[in-house]
Each structure stands twice: as structure tokens, then as C-alpha cells.
């Protein structure tokens, strides 16, 4: 019973969101407001449980693991933002939050986004690979080099630098076009999924 009612409600809110395609209207506004409220509540409960309860309350209060106490203290510091007088103390929590991840990012980004990508751009040996493979990897190399030249900021893009960066922007545009075309079918399949919900699941629920 609740399941069938749920499908009917789901179909109604689906139509309400689709109505945005016509224009902003009271139905969409209702659905948008409901989505914001319900999802904000949903995530609040999830994080309170998974973060505050499981990562702070149980280990610190329940098991006496004091290594997890600073998390709670930093969390409380951030609440001091609400007071003008001691607002500065919340900077400790924000500095912690941002700097901790930055520290982690430096080596991992250097390895995954830079070193591995550079390594993967190296072409195969002339002696081992076919002419097509060599030409392909040479083309790839020209693309990567010219794009990196496009991203030079401290020099005017004139002369040779300007011409190479023009090649770079050409590669970028073809690449972005390809990404665009590649994504279209995926988006259409999402729409088909919603239509299946409306034209298959809903009639089944109503036939009950």
C-alpha cells in the first residue's frame, strides 16, 4: 500500500519538476522547496549519525578514545562564528579543515595528475610499434605540449608561443566537442529512465 502510494507521489513530484521546462510555475516552486527542505533534513540526519554520533559520541563518550576529542572541539570552535567577540577562534577550525586536505593533495595530485599523465604520454619505441601507433602518440604529444603552452600565464602569447597556444586551443576545442558528443547519449538514457517510471511503474502501481 505505502509502496504504491509512494510511486504515485514520486510520479507527481516528477511531473512537477518536469514542469520547469515550460517555465517557472507554482508546481515547480512547490517541488523545489520540498526538495530543498527534505534533502537538507535527510543529509543533516545522515551526517549527525555518521559523523557526530559514530566518529565522536561513540568513540569519545562511549569508549573513552581521546584521540577523537579534538574533532568535537574543532567543531565547537566553528560554531563560535556566531559570536562577534570570539569569532576569530573559528579560524582554527577552518585552517585545520582546509590545510589538512591541502597537505594530502600535494603529493597525490603531483603523482596522479602530473607524473602519471606525463609518463603515459611518452610514445612507444620506434623499433617496436607500428607507424600508426607512433604517429598517433606523436599527435597526442603535440596536443599535450601545445595545451600546456596555452596555460602559460607569465608570457604574452605572441610569436611562436602564440602559434603553439593556438594549436593548444584547437586541441582543447576538438576535445571538448568530443566530450560533449560522448555525454549526449548518457543524458538521453536518463530521460528514458524517468519516462519508464512514469509510463511503466506508475500504471502498474495504479492497476493495483
Amino acid at each position: 500500500m505505502w509502496e504504491q502510494a509512494g510511486i504515485v507521489v514520486g510520479a507527481l513530484v516528477t511531473l512537477a519538476i518536469f514542469s520547469l521546462l515550460y517555465k517557472d510555475n507554482p508546481l515547480y516552486r512547490f517541488a523545489e522547496s520540498l526538495l530543498v527542505g527534505v534533502s537538507a533534513g535527510y543529509y543533516l540526519v545522515q551526517y549527525c549519525f555518521s559523523a557526530i554520533y559514530r566518529k565522536f559520541y561513540i568513540p569519545v563518550i562511549g569508549e573513552g578514545d581521546l584521540w577523537l576529542l579534538p574533532g568535537g572541539i574543532l567543531g565547537l570552535l566553528i560554531l563560535l562564528r556566531l559570536s562577534r567577540r570570539v569569532q576569530w577562534m573559528s579560524r582554527y577550525a577552518i585552517a585545520f579543515y582546509v590545510a589538512a586536505w591541502s597537505g594530502y593533495l600535494i603529493p597525490s595530485v603531483l603523482q596522479e595528475r602530473i607524473l602519471i599523465q606525463i609518463r603515459s604520454t611518452f610514445p612507444p619505441s620506434l623499433a617496436e610499434a607500428s607507424i600508426w601507433a607512433v604517429l598517433g602518440s606523436l599527435f597526442l604529444l603535440v596536443g599535450v605540449v601545445s595545451i600546456l603552452v596555452y596555460f602559460f600565464f607569465s608570457a604574452e602569447h605572441r610569436g611562436a608561443l602564440g602559434r603553439i597556444s593556438q594549436v593548444g586551443i584547437t586541441f582543447l576545442m576538438v576535445g571538448f566537442g568530443a566530450s560533449f558528443g560522448y555525454t549526449v547519449m548518457g543524458r538521453v538514457s536518463l530521460l528514458i529512465g524517468r519516462f519508464q517510471y512514469l509510463f511503466q511503474d506508475l500504471p502498474q502501481a495504479l492497476s493495483f
Partner: peptide, 23 residues
């Protein structure tokens, strides 16, 4: 990086792979 990339590519053409030095 560009120097490493271009030099590495030239060496790779001749069968010298500096890839393992990059992680």
C-alpha cells in the same frame, strides 16, 4: 615538465624509457 615530456618522448622513441623514474 615540458622539457621532461619532450626529452622523455625523444628517448622513448629510441627505446629508452624514463617512465619508471616518474612514479
Amino acid at each position: 615538465l615540458l622539457v621532461v615530456l619532450i626529452a622523455g618522448a625523444i628517448l622513448a622513441f629510441f627505446g629508452i624509457d624514463i617512465g619508471p623514474y616518474l612514479g
